[in-house]
Amino acid sequence: MVIEINPQQQRKDNSLTIPSPTFYQALLKKIQELHGDFGAAAIREGFAAKYFNERTRIAIVRARHGPHKLITSVLPFVKEVDKKKVSLVTLYTGATMRQCFKFILNHQQKKINEICSTLQSEEEKVAIKEALLKFNSTQTLS
């Protein structure tokens, strides 16, 4: 069970650096708050904040099927991660990583098209494309 979310920063710069463990802790804390001991215990099994793309600000959260509903209900209430004010938007909920990556690819492609429409030269477009599709700034935590 993989959920994908998009933390949107309130500040001007587009990139956002948040280490995976802090993101994980922020979610866990919020669930403890809103769903209590029961909620925290229900999601902890198999729970992981898996990866965070700094440039496109995309994170993947893994949860078991069933308690994933607890997480999706809590996501809009997460306001602070790593002392930074954020708002989370659930982009996609899928059952396999494959489906999620497929979605991310489409999502990135859409973003590239948006940016490219504002650009003039061909070289800039290629540079943007490479910058967005590079998944090198990732961290994992399980």
Partner: peptide, 10 residues
């Protein structure tokens, strides 16, 4: 006690 076990929503 409800809040402790099932959280603010419950």
């Amino acid at each position: 006690s409800i809040k402790h076990v099932f959280g603010e929503i419950a």
